[in-house]
Design a protein around this nucleic acid. Structure first.
Length: 398
DNA sequence: TAATATGATTACTT
DNA sequence: AAGTAATCATATTA
């Protein structure tokens, strides 16, 4: 029963680190059978001699029986044991053994170590607990850990796929961990009871103090818990790997939906003179685009810088969105205040400044070039005179 | 496949 | 803390 499979490759870390392929070696109990010691006591015709001689032979006999008792089959052993217990020299031997034990017992007394709770193990436990691997089953545990780990960035809804992937992987690890743990615990208790029974049984033929049993049990538990520590360790490793992979995935960029960029661009170009959405506006935009506020921040940061760097390149885009907003504005200029067009709700904060102060050229298209990019917005900036590949003079007729 | 677009990150600045 | 500018790394396009 205790030959349980040593955590084969289905472990969380591809079998790495869990390569304990043998049960904890607790052999002091059953390994002593010097089977080669069979003395040939065949010459029984020699009995008449001194008493001492006979006694020695008796003791040798009984010792022999004790030594070989574990070699016997169960029935045989049972019978032998019975015979042993009924042996007339048994009490004497027993008392001798007691005496010897009394003398040698000292060495055992100081073997009294109280394990001071390995800090490494404590750390492992804490981590497993924090990751939601150990401890009670809770759906939010893993998710909480993840969101804590990724709180800085903010995740797009796209990553919810990876998120659930992460969660399922984590629960997989969790399951493996728990089943393995259970297995070990069961094996441990089974083995412990087995050993205790054995010791109890043996206590009939040799002196076994409760203290001894206790010690043996402690040894067994130590052995098993060292295995469990290994399991914990590799579980932690697996979680770490999973986690780093998840965080890597976070770096993977995915473009926002068409509709989302639409909304963002609409806001941007309709607030070109001051494209700094307030906290509220950011939240509103985030909601509309189903992205996070920090993603909105990123987007505006990127947009501002890139627009400023090369206005010419964005001229067309600006015109398009200016047009859109204009249409939206005229559409509802007399009706309800809902400038929706492409799903863009009205950001009713600070009216859109389409065609800001800049006079719309003297011509046809509403060349949308307001934005005081040349020295306004936040702080000073010295755009290296936007290359303006677009034929239209992107600079205001100053 | 190279070039470009784009979302995220980082180091600073204000 | 919010921005800017530079940069990274991937997505998309030509």
């Amino acid at each position: 029963m205790l030959q349980q499979q040593p955590l084969t490759g289905n472990g969380p870390s591809n079998g790495r680190g869990l390569g304990l392929n043998s049960h904890p070696g607790i052999h002091p109990l059953n390994s002593v059978h010097p089977s080669s010691h069979h003395r040939s006591d065949g010459e029984s015709g020699h009995e008449g001699a001194e008493n001492g001689h006979e006694n020695r032979r008796d003791i040798g006999d009984i010792l022999q029986q004790i030594m070989t008792i574990t070699d016997q089959s169960l029935d045989e052993a049972q019978a032998k044991k019975h015979a042993l217990n009924c042996h007339r020299m048994k009490p004497a031997l027993f008392s001798v053994l007691c005496e010897i034990k009394e003398k040698t017992g000292l060495s055992m007394r100081n073997a009294h170590e109280e394990e001071p709770q390995d800090p490494q193990l404590v750390r492992l436990d804490n981590m497993l607990l924090a990751e939601g691997v150990a401890g009670p089953e809770k759906g939010g545990g893993a998710a909480a850990a993840v969101s804590a780990a990724t709180s800085s960035g903010g995740m797009s809804p796209d990553s919810s796929l990876e998120h659930s992937d992460y969660k399922s992987k984590l629960s997989q690890i969790r399951n493996i961990y728990h089943t393995e743990m259970e297995k070990y615990e069961q094996a441990c208790s089974e083995f412990t009871t087995h050993v205790m029974n054995l010791l109890r049984e043996q206590s009939r033929t040799r002196p076994v103090s409760p203290r001894e049993i206790e010690r043996m049990v402690a040894i067994i538990h130590r052995k098993f818990s060292s295995i469990q520590t290994q399991l914990k360790q590799s579980t932690c490793e697996a979680v770490m790997i999973l986690r780093s992979r998840f965080l890597d995935a976070r770096r993977k960029r995915r473009n926002f939906s068409k509709q989302a960029t639409e909304v963002l661009n609409e806001y941007f170009y309709s607030h070109l003179s001051n494209p700094y959405p307030s906290e509220e506006a950011k939240e509103e935009l985030a909601k509309q685009c189903s992205i996070t506020v920090s993603q909105v921040c990123n987007w505006f940061g990127n947009k501002r810088i890139r627009y400023k760097k090369n206005i010419g390149k964005f001229q067309e885009e600006a015109n398009i969105y200016a047009m859109k907003t204009a249409i939206g504005a005229t559409q509802n200029e007399d009706s309800t205040h809902t400038p929706n067009s492409t799903g863009s709700g009205g950001y009713s904060l600070s009216g859109p400044d389409l065609f800001l102060g800049v006079p719309p050229m003297n011509g046809e298209q509403p060349v949308y070039m307001g934005a005081q990019t040349n020295g306004h917005w936040q702080g000073q900036n010295t755009p290296p005179s936007a290359t303006s590949p677009g034929s239209d003079h992107s600079r205001d007729s100053d």
